[in-house]
Nucleic acid binder design. Structure first.
Lengths: 198, 198
DNA sequence: ACAGTTCTAGAGCGTCCTTTCTAGATCGTA
DNA sequence: TACGATCTAGAAAGGACGCTCTAGAACTGT
């Protein structure tokens, strides 16, 4: 049909992500993404339309990767088993996709993505993004605590996402190999979920 | 001796910090800091020399505020009591200085401060910054675990700093009033410190 | 071989940002 | 009041960045 791409979309998104992780949004200039990936600036705009849209795609790809594993990990077993599996996936994700994990840890959605200058369909993708995970947490909270009140949902999110990330954070920002004590994470998660209701 | 300042250094640093917290380094332009604080651009350079130095002062002020309370909180009692007090201070700090806490949570030192374009004495201040806290953790680790191995130091830092911040993180990024369950934090910290050695 | 389509390639434009510069304002002191 | 010192004030220079634009290259289907 047409001329094939010299540089894959993923390669360009990888370059942008690595620049973001290294030096933040300020480092991910179009010129930098171009020279890192090898794709000329014109190609970036031909593919993604604008810098904001390119960065949005980076974000979407990373979050989807994380969520896919999270949903897969927390499908079977008792509620506590699923919660522990979800927490462990957060660690596993950091080990398997360190660059993506660093993006999730370090990038602030609001800073990275100014929704104002994104086309409608991208905005929609971004808002739809959290639905499946919220449903997952809602189900877990119902099984664990009885009813999914906001406070309990939050506690669950802290236990299965925030705390595991807190444990891997130091390794990730340094780039050192993350030899994380998974039992330590399970220990903390269990303590958070078993703690008396606040 | 001379004309007094119309705009205090603290007011300027506050403006810069709020912009950083809101929109990241990209939002803290000299023009934005000027219009937010009221101080003209010329004054910013007269006071701080350059934008990097101004941002470095913001960072230094925030870290020092946090550390002062941390060191004060963890001075008396058993080792476990001091560790719990340190963890609780992390929550307390987020309640008392939400903007500073958000800066510590969100800003990445490497992204905010390019050491290359900072004068030597500022660089020195930045490197000296962590010493007292490392000493504190080292002492706590010795009392808690026997000897302060790197793995134990890290575990302590996770328990005392990272986990408490993980708990307040969601509140801080939204700006909602952080009604944090402190007992939940103590629970998790205790679990991490009591867990069998990894 | 030809047409149609998609992608590469990078020079150039307008904008915003950091920094500098100069003139004037406001203080303490003599 | 006059003087030195410090700070205010904002215009303007110089550079970097996002984005556009045009020309051509590379492939498929006929």
């Amino acid at each position: 049909m047409a001329r094939p791409k010299l540089h894959s979309d993923d390669a360009i998104l990888d370059a942008a992500r690595d620049l973001l992780v290294r030096g933040g949004p300020g480092a991910a200039t179009t010129a930098a993404i171009s020279s890192t990936s090898g794709a000329p600036v014109g190609s970036l705009y031909h593919r993604f339309g604008s810098r904001p849209q390119l960065l949005a795609e980076v974000w979407l790809r990373t979050v989807r990767r994380f969520q896919a594993g999270l949903l897969a990990a927390a499908t079977s077993g008792t509620a506590m088993e699923r919660a522990l599996a979800a927490a462990d996936w957060t660690v596993e994700f950091a080990l398997r996709h360190p660059a993506d994990a660093r993006l999730l840890l370090q990038a602030r959605r609001e800073e990275l993505l100014a929704d104002a200058d994104l086309p409608a369909h991208v905005r929609q993708s971004l808002t739809d993004l959290n639905k499946p995970v919220i449903d997952l947490l809602r189900g877990l909270a119902a099984d664990l605590f009885g009813a999914p009140t906001p406070a309990r949902l939050e506690r669950l999110a802290i236990a299965v996402v925030d705390v595991p990330y807190a444990v891997v954070r130091r390794h990730l920002s340094r780039g050192t190999s993350p030899r994380v004590d998974r039992d330590l994470v399970s220990h903390a998660v269990r303590a958070l979920l078993d703690a008396p209701a606040g």
